[in-house]
Amino acid sequence: MNVFRLCGDMSHVFSIVVLLLRLRVAKNASGISLRTHELFLLVFLTRYTDLFTTYYSLYNSCMKIAYILSTASIVYMIRLSDPICTTYDKAQDTFRHWAFAVGPCAVLATLTHFISGEGSGYSLFVNIQELLWTFSIYLESIAILPQLILLQRYREVENLTGNYIFFMGSYRALYILNWIYRTYYEPGYRHHYVAYFCGVLQTLLYADFFYYYMQSKRRGGRFSLPT
């Protein structure tokens, strides 16, 4: 554990807390994409199957469970919890996440899994677990897209929603620093190039948002995206 990874994780947790608070306190889900959070839930469920098979640390296990539970509760609130669910604007949340996110990621994960030859010689169960891990890495990199597209529609971005996306983006940017750090200071550190590639892609998707976020913070004014 290094300082970049810890800050990255804390940034991730913080973004989730910001969103949970926003939903609970404002009792309002407008401007929030349910599809993004369903994608994140799928990401966590497919990546953390190792909760049952590999123990890394108490920290790791607790965080994994916390991510799954908190994201599940976000999805539950937006979908079912009255009165929040009545404020969810389904008509605006239109990114076709099955066709353009889940499907392509599943295909890509299958291809990389078999082309890389990873998993050959391992049991079917381990192979499926590896495949799901790779799928989750791909899917996480683009899971924010429905949310970013929804924001483009509204343009005027609420403070808390803006902060949520900012911390969510910072999390993966900090992970990149963590990978660089580990490459230098951990002998025998195993590289996962799919994770690196997706981590960079994921961070780049936030770049444009970061730019307008910073500008609005500097002006101290309201945050709106350009047309």
Binding site: D50, Y67, G119, Q129, W179, Y189, R190, H191, A195
Partner: peptide, 10 residues
Amino acid sequence: LKDGGSKDEL
């Protein structure tokens, strides 16, 4: 296979 590298991350 599962151990090491970015697989001990979140």
